[in-house]
Amino acid sequence: MIRFDYARPADVSEAVRAGSGEHAAFLAGGTNLVDVMKENVARPLQVVDINRLPLTDIEAREDGGLRLGALVTNAATAYDPRVQQRYPLLASAILAGASPQLRNAATNGGNLNQRTRCYYFYDVDTPCNKRNPGEGCGAIGGVNRIHAILGASDQCIATHPSDMCVALAALEAHVQVTGPDGDRAIAFSDYHRLPGDEPWRDNTLRSGELVTAIDLPAENFSTHYTYLKLRDRLSYAFALVSVAVALRLSEDGRIEVARIALGGVAHKPWRVPAAESLLQGEQPGERVFQAAAHAITEGAVGQGQNSFKIELARRAVVRALGQAAAGTPQSQTDKRIA
Protein backbone atom coordinates (compact mmCIF):
# COMPACT_ATOMS: atom_id res chain seq x y z
CA MET A 1 0.00 0.00 0.00
CA ILE A 2 1.02 3.64 -0.43
CA ARG A 3 2.87 5.43 2.37
CA PHE A 4 1.13 8.19 4.29
CA ASP A 5 1.20 10.27 7.43
CA TYR A 6 -1.10 9.10 10.21
CA ALA A 7 -2.86 11.21 12.83
CA ARG A 8 -5.32 10.15 15.51
CA PRO A 9 -7.04 13.30 16.81
CA ALA A 10 -8.99 13.10 20.07
CA ASP A 11 -11.61 15.77 19.38
CA VAL A 12 -13.62 17.00 16.44
CA SER A 13 -11.98 20.41 16.07
CA GLU A 14 -8.54 18.81 16.03
CA ALA A 15 -9.77 16.35 13.39
CA VAL A 16 -11.12 19.15 11.20
CA ARG A 17 -7.79 20.95 11.45
CA ALA A 18 -5.88 17.80 10.55
CA GLY A 19 -8.31 16.94 7.76
CA SER A 20 -8.28 20.30 6.01
CA GLY A 21 -5.10 19.59 4.04
CA GLU A 22 -5.46 19.19 0.29
CA HIS A 23 -4.47 15.52 0.34
CA ALA A 24 -5.96 14.46 3.68
CA ALA A 25 -8.55 11.72 4.12
CA PHE A 26 -10.68 10.85 7.14
CA LEU A 27 -10.49 7.16 8.09
CA ALA A 28 -13.34 5.55 10.03
CA GLY A 29 -14.17 1.85 9.55
CA GLY A 30 -11.84 1.65 6.57
CA THR A 31 -13.93 -0.84 4.61
CA ASN A 32 -13.94 1.41 1.55
CA LEU A 33 -11.01 3.81 2.02
CA VAL A 34 -8.44 1.08 2.75
CA ASP A 35 -9.71 -0.83 -0.29
CA VAL A 36 -9.39 2.11 -2.69
CA MET A 37 -5.96 2.91 -1.21
CA LYS A 38 -4.81 -0.63 -1.97
CA GLU A 39 -5.97 -0.16 -5.56
CA ASN A 40 -4.10 3.16 -5.83
CA VAL A 41 -7.43 4.85 -6.53
CA ALA A 42 -7.22 7.00 -3.39
CA ARG A 43 -3.75 8.37 -2.61
CA PRO A 44 -4.01 10.52 0.51
CA LEU A 45 -0.82 11.94 1.97
CA GLN A 46 -2.38 12.30 5.42
CA VAL A 47 -4.77 9.78 6.89
CA VAL A 48 -6.75 11.20 9.80
CA ASP A 49 -8.07 8.37 11.98
CA ILE A 50 -11.34 9.63 13.45
CA ASN A 51 -12.22 6.46 15.35
CA ARG A 52 -11.52 8.09 18.73
CA LEU A 53 -13.97 10.98 18.20
CA PRO A 54 -17.08 11.01 20.40
CA LEU A 55 -19.54 10.40 17.55
CA THR A 56 -20.55 6.90 18.62
CA ASP A 57 -24.04 7.37 20.08
CA ILE A 58 -27.61 7.05 18.89
CA GLU A 59 -29.71 9.67 20.67
CA ALA A 60 -33.36 10.72 20.79
CA ARG A 61 -33.99 14.20 19.41
CA GLU A 62 -36.37 16.78 20.89
CA ASP A 63 -38.49 16.82 17.73
CA GLY A 64 -39.20 13.10 18.16
CA GLY A 65 -36.55 12.01 15.68
CA LEU A 66 -33.32 10.11 16.20
CA ARG A 67 -29.70 11.21 15.78
CA LEU A 68 -27.30 8.55 14.48
CA GLY A 69 -23.66 9.33 15.32
CA ALA A 70 -21.36 9.24 12.30
CA LEU A 71 -19.13 6.60 13.93
CA VAL A 72 -21.88 4.20 14.97
CA THR A 73 -21.34 1.08 12.89
CA ASN A 74 -23.88 0.01 10.29
CA ALA A 75 -24.53 -3.16 12.33
CA ALA A 76 -25.06 -1.29 15.61
CA THR A 77 -27.46 1.04 13.80
CA ALA A 78 -29.48 -1.72 12.12
CA TYR A 79 -29.82 -3.74 15.35
CA ASP A 80 -30.52 -0.77 17.65
CA PRO A 81 -33.99 -1.38 19.15
CA ARG A 82 -35.10 2.20 18.44
CA VAL A 83 -34.08 1.88 14.80
CA GLN A 84 -35.65 -1.58 14.48
CA GLN A 85 -38.97 -0.50 15.98
CA ARG A 86 -39.30 3.03 14.66
CA TYR A 87 -37.27 3.05 11.45
CA PRO A 88 -37.51 -0.53 10.17
CA LEU A 89 -37.03 0.72 6.60
CA LEU A 90 -33.54 1.89 7.53
CA ALA A 91 -32.70 -1.32 9.43
CA SER A 92 -33.91 -3.40 6.49
CA ALA A 93 -31.86 -1.47 3.94
CA ILE A 94 -28.69 -1.71 6.02
CA LEU A 95 -29.12 -5.46 6.47
CA ALA A 96 -29.65 -5.87 2.72
CA GLY A 97 -26.12 -4.56 2.11
CA ALA A 98 -22.59 -5.96 2.35
CA SER A 99 -21.85 -8.74 4.88
CA PRO A 100 -21.95 -9.00 8.68
CA GLN A 101 -18.17 -8.49 8.81
CA LEU A 102 -18.34 -5.32 6.72
CA ARG A 103 -21.37 -3.97 8.60
CA ASN A 104 -19.52 -4.49 11.91
CA ALA A 105 -16.68 -2.25 10.71
CA ALA A 106 -18.37 0.23 8.35
CA THR A 107 -19.74 3.40 9.93
CA ASN A 108 -22.76 5.57 9.14
CA GLY A 109 -20.64 8.49 7.97
CA GLY A 110 -18.49 6.18 5.88
CA ASN A 111 -21.52 4.59 4.25
CA LEU A 112 -22.53 8.00 2.89
CA ASN A 113 -19.05 8.73 1.61
CA GLN A 114 -18.18 5.38 0.02
CA ARG A 115 -17.06 5.55 -3.60
CA THR A 116 -18.69 3.96 -6.60
CA ARG A 117 -17.89 0.33 -7.45
CA CYS A 118 -17.63 1.12 -11.19
CA TYR A 119 -15.01 -1.28 -12.59
CA TYR A 120 -13.28 1.50 -14.50
CA PHE A 121 -13.06 3.75 -11.44
CA TYR A 122 -11.31 0.89 -9.63
CA ASP A 123 -8.94 -0.08 -12.43
CA VAL A 124 -6.20 2.55 -12.74
CA ASP A 125 -5.16 1.12 -16.11
CA THR A 126 -8.45 2.25 -17.68
CA PRO A 127 -9.79 5.77 -18.24
CA CYS A 128 -12.10 7.33 -15.65
CA ASN A 129 -13.20 10.94 -15.32
CA LYS A 130 -14.10 10.43 -11.68
CA ARG A 131 -10.63 9.22 -10.77
CA ASN A 132 -8.67 11.29 -13.27
CA PRO A 133 -10.65 14.32 -14.54
CA GLY A 134 -10.50 14.69 -18.31
CA GLU A 135 -9.31 11.15 -18.96
CA GLY A 136 -12.58 9.90 -20.46
CA CYS A 137 -15.09 7.25 -19.35
CA GLY A 138 -14.40 3.59 -20.02
CA ALA A 139 -17.88 2.52 -19.00
CA ILE A 140 -19.65 4.45 -21.77
CA GLY A 141 -19.56 1.96 -24.62
CA GLY A 142 -17.78 -0.52 -22.35
CA VAL A 143 -18.84 -3.07 -19.75
CA ASN A 144 -21.73 -1.30 -18.06
CA ARG A 145 -24.21 -3.84 -16.69
CA ILE A 146 -24.12 -2.20 -13.23
CA HIS A 147 -24.22 1.41 -14.41
CA ALA A 148 -26.66 4.31 -14.26
CA ILE A 149 -29.85 4.70 -16.28
CA LEU A 150 -30.89 8.00 -14.70
CA GLY A 151 -29.14 11.33 -14.20
CA ALA A 152 -25.89 10.26 -15.88
CA SER A 153 -23.75 12.59 -17.97
CA ASP A 154 -21.55 12.14 -21.03
CA GLN A 155 -18.60 12.09 -18.61
CA CYS A 156 -19.73 9.55 -16.02
CA ILE A 157 -22.36 6.82 -15.69
CA ALA A 158 -21.31 5.53 -12.25
CA THR A 159 -23.86 4.67 -9.55
CA HIS A 160 -23.79 5.26 -5.81
CA PRO A 161 -23.51 1.79 -4.26
CA SER A 162 -25.17 2.28 -0.86
CA ASP A 163 -28.37 0.58 0.31
CA MET A 164 -28.54 2.58 3.55
CA CYS A 165 -28.58 5.86 1.64
CA VAL A 166 -31.61 4.79 -0.41
CA ALA A 167 -33.61 4.41 2.81
CA LEU A 168 -32.23 7.69 4.20
CA ALA A 169 -33.38 9.46 1.03
CA ALA A 170 -36.90 8.06 1.43
CA LEU A 171 -36.94 9.02 5.14
CA GLU A 172 -35.71 12.57 4.30
CA ALA A 173 -32.84 12.45 6.77
CA HIS A 174 -30.46 15.35 7.31
CA VAL A 175 -26.68 15.08 7.36
CA GLN A 176 -24.93 17.06 10.10
CA VAL A 177 -21.45 18.23 9.13
CA THR A 178 -18.76 20.35 10.69
CA GLY A 179 -15.84 22.00 8.99
CA PRO A 180 -13.44 24.94 8.83
CA ASP A 181 -16.45 27.29 8.41
CA GLY A 182 -18.55 25.79 11.19
CA ASP A 183 -21.52 23.43 11.40
CA ARG A 184 -24.35 22.96 8.93
CA ALA A 185 -27.14 20.50 8.12
CA ILE A 186 -27.60 19.18 4.58
CA ALA A 187 -30.95 17.78 3.42
CA PHE A 188 -30.35 14.22 2.26
CA SER A 189 -31.50 14.94 -1.30
CA ASP A 190 -28.83 17.66 -1.51
CA TYR A 191 -26.02 15.55 -0.04
CA HIS A 192 -25.11 13.38 -3.03
CA ARG A 193 -24.97 14.95 -6.47
CA LEU A 194 -25.26 14.00 -10.12
CA PRO A 195 -21.99 13.68 -12.06
CA GLY A 196 -22.59 16.49 -14.57
CA ASP A 197 -19.25 17.82 -15.75
CA GLU A 198 -17.61 17.37 -12.34
CA PRO A 199 -17.91 13.59 -11.87
CA TRP A 200 -15.06 13.54 -9.34
CA ARG A 201 -17.38 15.22 -6.82
CA ASP A 202 -19.62 12.56 -5.24
CA ASN A 203 -21.31 14.88 -2.78
CA THR A 204 -21.69 18.49 -1.69
CA LEU A 205 -19.28 18.36 1.25
CA ARG A 206 -16.86 21.28 1.20
CA SER A 207 -13.13 20.82 1.61
CA GLY A 208 -12.27 19.68 5.13
CA GLU A 209 -15.88 19.05 6.18
CA LEU A 210 -16.59 16.02 8.36
CA VAL A 211 -19.92 14.22 8.75
CA THR A 212 -20.79 14.12 12.46
CA ALA A 213 -24.32 12.65 12.49
CA ILE A 214 -27.39 11.68 10.50
CA ASP A 215 -30.71 13.01 11.80
CA LEU A 216 -33.87 11.01 11.20
CA PRO A 217 -37.13 13.00 11.30
CA ALA A 218 -39.98 12.03 13.62
CA GLU A 219 -42.15 10.60 10.81
CA ASN A 220 -40.79 7.07 10.56
CA PHE A 221 -43.18 5.09 8.28
CA SER A 222 -42.88 2.08 10.59
CA THR A 223 -46.03 0.35 9.28
CA HIS A 224 -46.07 0.71 5.49
CA TYR A 225 -42.54 0.37 4.14
CA THR A 226 -40.28 -1.99 2.24
CA TYR A 227 -36.73 -2.24 0.93
CA LEU A 228 -36.63 -4.42 -2.16
CA LYS A 229 -33.18 -5.17 -3.53
CA LEU A 230 -32.54 -7.02 -6.79
CA ARG A 231 -29.04 -8.31 -7.59
CA ASP A 232 -27.07 -11.02 -9.35
CA ARG A 233 -26.81 -13.18 -6.19
CA LEU A 234 -29.06 -13.12 -3.17
CA SER A 235 -26.56 -11.88 -0.61
CA TYR A 236 -23.28 -9.97 -0.45
CA ALA A 237 -23.77 -8.21 -3.79
CA PHE A 238 -24.52 -4.68 -4.86
CA ALA A 239 -27.96 -3.75 -6.14
CA LEU A 240 -28.75 -3.80 -9.83
CA VAL A 241 -31.93 -2.03 -8.80
CA SER A 242 -33.25 -1.39 -5.31
CA VAL A 243 -36.35 0.43 -4.09
CA ALA A 244 -37.16 1.99 -0.74
CA VAL A 245 -40.85 2.76 -0.30
CA ALA A 246 -42.47 4.51 2.66
CA LEU A 247 -46.21 5.17 2.76
CA ARG A 248 -48.61 6.82 5.17
CA LEU A 249 -52.18 5.60 4.69
CA SER A 250 -55.34 7.29 5.94
CA GLU A 251 -58.04 5.43 7.89
CA ASP A 252 -59.95 4.67 4.69
CA GLY A 253 -56.78 3.20 3.19
CA ARG A 254 -55.86 6.06 0.86
CA ILE A 255 -52.25 7.09 0.39
CA GLU A 256 -51.58 10.34 2.27
CA VAL A 257 -47.82 10.46 1.84
CA ALA A 258 -45.65 8.40 -0.50
CA ARG A 259 -41.89 8.28 -0.72
CA ILE A 260 -40.06 6.23 -3.35
CA ALA A 261 -36.26 6.13 -3.69
CA LEU A 262 -34.36 4.02 -6.21
CA GLY A 263 -30.86 2.64 -5.66
CA GLY A 264 -28.38 1.20 -8.15
CA VAL A 265 -29.66 3.37 -11.00
CA ALA A 266 -27.99 6.77 -10.56
CA HIS A 267 -25.09 8.70 -9.04
CA LYS A 268 -27.34 9.31 -6.01
CA PRO A 269 -30.49 7.78 -4.52
CA TRP A 270 -33.14 8.67 -7.11
CA ARG A 271 -36.35 10.43 -6.11
CA VAL A 272 -38.93 12.17 -8.27
CA PRO A 273 -41.47 14.20 -6.23
CA ALA A 274 -43.90 14.27 -9.18
CA ALA A 275 -44.01 10.46 -9.18
CA GLU A 276 -44.77 10.42 -5.45
CA SER A 277 -47.56 13.00 -5.74
CA LEU A 278 -49.31 10.83 -8.36
CA LEU A 279 -50.05 8.45 -5.47
CA GLN A 280 -51.37 11.08 -3.08
CA GLY A 281 -55.05 10.67 -2.24
CA GLU A 282 -55.29 7.43 -4.24
CA GLN A 283 -56.30 3.97 -3.10
CA PRO A 284 -53.30 1.63 -3.48
CA GLY A 285 -53.58 -0.37 -6.70
CA GLU A 286 -51.84 -1.58 -9.82
CA ARG A 287 -52.96 1.37 -11.98
CA VAL A 288 -51.51 4.12 -9.75
CA PHE A 289 -48.43 2.02 -8.96
CA GLN A 290 -47.73 1.69 -12.71
CA ALA A 291 -48.17 5.43 -13.17
CA ALA A 292 -45.71 6.17 -10.37
CA ALA A 293 -43.23 3.60 -11.71
CA HIS A 294 -43.27 5.22 -15.14
CA ALA A 295 -42.97 8.72 -13.69
CA ILE A 296 -39.95 7.89 -11.51
CA THR A 297 -38.10 6.34 -14.47
CA GLU A 298 -39.02 9.11 -16.93
CA GLY A 299 -36.01 10.02 -19.03
CA ALA A 300 -34.19 6.77 -18.26
CA VAL A 301 -31.48 5.93 -20.80
CA GLY A 302 -29.82 2.54 -21.18
CA GLN A 303 -26.15 2.14 -22.05
CA GLY A 304 -26.52 -1.25 -23.74
CA GLN A 305 -25.68 -3.88 -21.14
CA ASN A 306 -27.70 -2.10 -18.44
CA SER A 307 -30.77 -1.29 -20.54
CA PHE A 308 -32.69 -4.10 -18.80
CA LYS A 309 -32.62 -1.99 -15.64
CA ILE A 310 -35.26 0.41 -16.97
CA GLU A 311 -38.02 -2.20 -17.07
CA LEU A 312 -36.60 -3.93 -13.97
CA ALA A 313 -36.80 -0.65 -12.02
CA ARG A 314 -40.44 -0.11 -13.06
CA ARG A 315 -41.46 -3.61 -12.04
CA ALA A 316 -39.52 -3.30 -8.77
CA VAL A 317 -41.32 -0.04 -7.94
CA VAL A 318 -44.73 -1.62 -8.57
CA ARG A 319 -43.84 -4.65 -6.44
CA ALA A 320 -42.36 -2.53 -3.64
CA LEU A 321 -45.40 -0.25 -3.53
CA GLY A 322 -47.58 -3.35 -3.23
CA GLN A 323 -45.44 -4.73 -0.38
CA ALA A 324 -45.50 -1.43 1.49
CA ALA A 325 -49.24 -0.84 1.04
CA ALA A 326 -49.99 -4.35 2.30
CA GLY A 327 -47.70 -3.93 5.30
CA THR A 328 -45.66 -6.95 4.19
CA PRO A 329 -42.09 -5.66 3.85
CA GLN A 330 -39.45 -7.65 1.97
CA SER A 331 -37.58 -10.05 4.28
CA GLN A 332 -33.80 -9.66 4.13
CA THR A 333 -33.37 -13.28 5.28
CA ASP A 334 -35.87 -15.15 3.15
CA LYS A 335 -35.15 -13.53 -0.20
CA ARG A 336 -38.27 -14.81 -1.94
CA ILE A 337 -40.16 -11.79 -3.23
CA ALA A 338 -43.73 -11.81 -1.93
Binding site: R8, G30, D49, N51, P100, Q101, L102, A105
Partner: peptide, 20 residues
Protein backbone atom coordinates in the same frame (compact mmCIF):
# COMPACT_ATOMS: atom_id res chain seq x y z
CA UNK B 1 -12.34 -12.92 9.23
CA UNK B 2 -11.19 -12.41 12.84
CA UNK B 3 -12.91 -11.19 15.98
CA UNK B 4 -12.30 -7.72 17.43
CA UNK B 5 -13.74 -7.47 20.95
CA UNK B 6 -15.90 -10.47 20.02
CA UNK B 7 -17.27 -9.06 16.75
CA UNK B 8 -16.19 -10.31 13.35
CA UNK B 9 -14.50 -8.08 10.78
CA UNK B 10 -12.38 -8.48 7.64
CA UNK B 11 -8.77 -8.16 8.83
CA UNK B 12 -7.63 -7.17 5.32
CA UNK B 13 -9.51 -3.85 5.45
CA UNK B 14 -8.48 -2.82 8.97
CA UNK B 15 -5.35 -0.78 9.52
CA UNK B 16 -3.71 -2.27 12.61
CA UNK B 17 -2.89 1.12 14.17
CA UNK B 18 -6.60 1.92 14.44
CA UNK B 19 -7.09 -0.95 16.91
CA UNK B 20 -5.09 0.48 19.84
Amino acid sequence: TVLIDGRRINACLKLAVTLE
